[in-house]
């Protein structure tokens, strides 16, 4: 189960809407070993694409260096789908490289950049196996 604050959910959704129709991506870091997401870090989608996302390589280095210095880990790795459901694609599954993270998928396919219904789901992706989990907004 992913426990996440309403404020963090809102920040992810706001980012996904702002970048629609391109995919948005980012991380919520938290203290290592705590499983608690608390520091929201929006990342630039270097691919700037409606069907792909990738953290910029220099930004990725800075992100991991900062998390290391702060004794944090990527508790949540999020990205949006803008035309399909909030379920990991084959590419998402094959490239998932943080077995300890919650992979959050948001879909903006219904409302785009506007306020309105969205999908927000969370998964574990370990060794190519996707397991959906409950999201508890606290």
């Amino acid at each position: 189960m992913l426990e996440i604050s309403r404020d963090l959910v809102d920040q992810i959704v706001r980012h996904a809407r702002a970048d629609h129709p391109d995919e948005a991506c980012g991380v919520i870091a938290g203290p290592a070993g705590s499983g608690k997401p608390n520091r929201f870090i929006a990342m630039i989608n270097a691919a700037r694409s409606p069907t792909f996302y990738e953290f910029d390589s220099a930004d990725l280095f800075t992100l991991y260096k900062e998390m290391d210095e702060r004794d944090e880990e990527p508790v949540v790795i999020y990205h949006s789908h803008t035309a399909t459901e909030a379920y990991p694609s084959r590419t998402d599954i094959s490239l998932a490289a943080e077995p300890g993270a919650h992979y959050v998928l948001v879909s903006t396919r219904q409302s785009g950049q506007n306020e309105g219904p969205y999908e927000f789901r969370s998964y574990r992706i370990v060794d190519g196996v996707v397991t959906e989990e409950t999201v508890k907004v606290i």
Binding site: C25, V27, M43, A47, T51, F52, Y53, E54, F55, S57, L60, F61, Y64, I77, H79, P88, S89, R90, T91, D92, L95, A96, A97, E98
Partner: peptide, 10 residues
């Protein structure tokens, strides 16, 4: 040397 897997997907 630092190795980091890309954070990427579709």
């Amino acid at each position: 040397i630092t190795i980091l897997p890309a954070v990427a997907g579709g």
